[in-house]
Write a protein that binds this DNA or RNA. Structure first.
Lengths: 191, 191
DNA sequence: CGATTTTTTGAATCATATCAACGTACGTGG
DNA sequence: CCACGTACGTTGATATGATTCAAAAAATCG
């Protein structure tokens, strides 16, 4: 059981023993969350890091009455309000469900226990490094590309999401208003 | 020797033994870099993660002929083009010296050797986590605050830097042109 | 189908960029 | 120690890109 998760762990740290992964299994719990519900709510402490088995979830925060989406996650991705999870302090962002989701939770206390194994330390390190790299690229993109360039980029490497995420959420992810994204698309289609 | 560095390591991982830190010392080398020179150049692989003993350095990248500063680092900070260091691939950003610097290098291969110790795995994990948190906050700030708010924030929690970093570099860090930052300052001074 | 949500369009406005000019400070060589 | 050159900061005028608000059109859902 939890095959996809074992694969994920072994890809980052091949040295994981069957016994170590069995230890992990004992910590995991499955949760089904319907569309529209929250996985984590701003202001609450994020208690789990969760693997997405099915569905589509989104991380976002609120800035003067408006949602700003910061990420979309599908089957095979891990999700958490990571800063909140790491520090066990209230989350600045929320995570909600766009398509009925099945997620597999790993709690904070269990994670700490697993860190007794060096392989889990290494896993935790590599996860944090990957998240850093992801965020670093997003940061660079926001600073050095125009909205249109960011949208084009999204078409190329996240085209599966474009069909599933409403355009007004993509707009905030790209950093523009829905109206402006609509105009960008119109302009692009004229070529 | 390398007292400040030992302190840095033990603050993140109190369990470090004297022997483990002595092992670290054998990997460290000091480098003096004068103002105007590069620590890492875009396109080259970042071979070291470096502790700043003295001086002031800056990370930046180039976007259509212009520099965009992404961070300023002083004594007590660690620097690297971290994605390049982690993946040993060419750096997207450069690091240069704004005030004559003394830095202490730790090479990639040595870092890998140290990861044999679980305590160094834990250290590496915590560093990556801190960097993630730092970047996450910067990201949020860029998306949800106005340039003026970002400048005010900078005054509050990096006021020491304002004296040492030329204003046009701060401008790109904040995400505006030098002219516009000048106007923001003028407007702020009218209150 | 009707009701609601999402996307598009238009017009006015605002924030920031650009370009060009000028002022000021600073460090260096004479 | 002065004068000059270079780098930095400021100011003004204009241009551009993105937002806002309002409304219509299109898509989605029960």
């Amino acid at each position: 059981m939890f095959k996809a998760i074992h694969k994920y762990y072994r890809e980052l740290v091949p040295a994981f023993s069957d016994q170590e992964l069995a230890e992990l299994d004992r910590c995991l719990t499955i949760r089904h969350i319907p569309k529209g519900q929250y996985v984590v709510r701003e202001g609450q402490v994020c208690r789990f890091v969760s693997f997405v088995n099915k569905g589509l979830v989104r991380e976002f925060y609120s800035a003067d009455q408006k949602d700003v989406s910061v990420g979309f996650f599908v089957a095979g991705d891990y999700i958490a309000e990571y800063e909140s999870f790491l520090t066990q302090t209230p989350a600045a962002a929320s995570i909600d469900v766009l398509e009925d989701a099945e997620i597999v939770d790993l709690g904070f206390a269990d994670m700490q226990r697993l860190y007794a194994y060096p392989n889990y330390q290494e896993f935790g390190r590599k996860i944090a490094e990957l998240l850093f790299i992801y965020l670093n690229r997003r940061n660079t993109a926001l600073l050095s590309f125009t909205p249109e360039e960011r949208y084009r980029k999204m078409i190329v490497d996240q085209h599966e999401l474009l069909q599933r995420v409403p355009q007004y959420m993509l707009a905030s992810f790209i950093g523009v208003t829905p109206e402006h994204l609509s105009r960008i698309r119109k302009k692009m289609s004229r070529n």
